[in-house]
């Protein structure tokens, strides 16, 4: 059973391009995600939600100043970005990056080969990719296009879900995957996450600003994130309360 453990995580963001000292963003985050669980992290803009996601994935802009992150006991923070992915972490990004010149099909095959340590079986590979694309209502013609180049916001998010399905990590972190999606696209994306969750032994960390997506992806735990740490924790009912009351109460308490 996989387990992602985050202990007392402190993270600063590099501001050297502005000639400034690193700015502390996360101020002691504790979170444990066990296989089979879905955790939702909710919070106002600027609370550090995305910083948590990118820090776990290893973005070089973020410096971990204290704390630990382990996946099944292995020290995630000592791994490079690609090693973290091969260890079983996946980050669906809020703003997926365009990579001109690299086709989606070549990208997916290279990633799958890297994750599995061997090339995928030719016989089933194309079918697997096409199936994953069709499930999120993405035209299979996207296979020949450059990664995310010229994709609409919704197409980029669907492409992230295709990758989630094809790479099938142990723990998926979804960073505001719901933002900017219309209701149909939201349902499609949620469907992909739910298929992923239906497998045994998979963990999900769902980062969102809105409660809307939680109608389609039912979390087991909800964490309210304010000022770079978890301010309150509860079950799905906490999300309902946030929808009714908003974040004002927490923001006022933190400031």
């Amino acid at each position: 059973m996989s387990i992602l453990e985050i202990r007392d995580l402190h993270v600063s963001v590099d501001a050297s391009d502005r000639g400034d000292e690193p700015i502390p963003i996360l101020n002691g985050v504790d979170l444990t995600i066990k296989a089979g669980q879905t955790h939702a992290i909710m919070g106002p803009n600027g609370s550090g939600k995305s910083t948590l996601a990118y820090s776990i994935a290893g973005h070089p802009k973020y410096q971990v100043t204290a704390g630990t992150v382990t996946l099944d006991g292995a020290d995630v923070l000592s791994m490079s970005v690609d090693e973290r992915a091969r260890a079983g972490l996946f980050l669906a990004m809020q703003y997926p990056v365009e990579v001109p010149g690299v086709s989606v099909s070549n990208f997916l095959r290279t990633a799958k080969t890297a994750i599995d340590g061997q090339p995928p079986k030719l016989r089933t590979w194309v079918k697997d990719v096409n199936t994953a694309m069709e499930r999120v209502k993405m035209d299979t013609a996207f296979s020949t296009r450059s990664v995310n180049e010229g994709f609409s916001g919704g197409e980029k998010k669907r492409h992230e879900i295709v990758q989630l399905e094809v790479l099938n990590p142990k723990v998926a972190i979804l960073d505001e995957t719901d933002s900017g999606l219309d209701i149909d696209a939201l349902k499609v994306v949620a469907g992909g996450v739910n298929r992923f969750r239906e497998q045994e032994d998979r963990g999900v960390l769902l980062i969102t600003h809105y409660t809307r997506i939680l109608r389609y992806i039912k979390p087991d735990f909800v964490h309210v994130f304010v000022g770079g740490r978890i301010a309150e924790e509860g079950g799905p009912e906490l999300a309902d309360r946030l929808e009714a009351e908003g974040y004002d109460r927490y923001v006022a308490a933190a400031s």
Binding site: G58, S80, D82, V99, T110, A114, I115
Partner: peptide, 20 residues
């Protein structure tokens, strides 16, 4: 970062982009 976050190491990522 995007390519690495999909398990592709830095050299391979560069190669992928230049090949393409």
């Amino acid at each position: 970062f995007y390519l690495q976050s999909r398990g592709i190491d830095a050299d391979e990522a560069r190669r992928l982009v230049v090949h393409g």
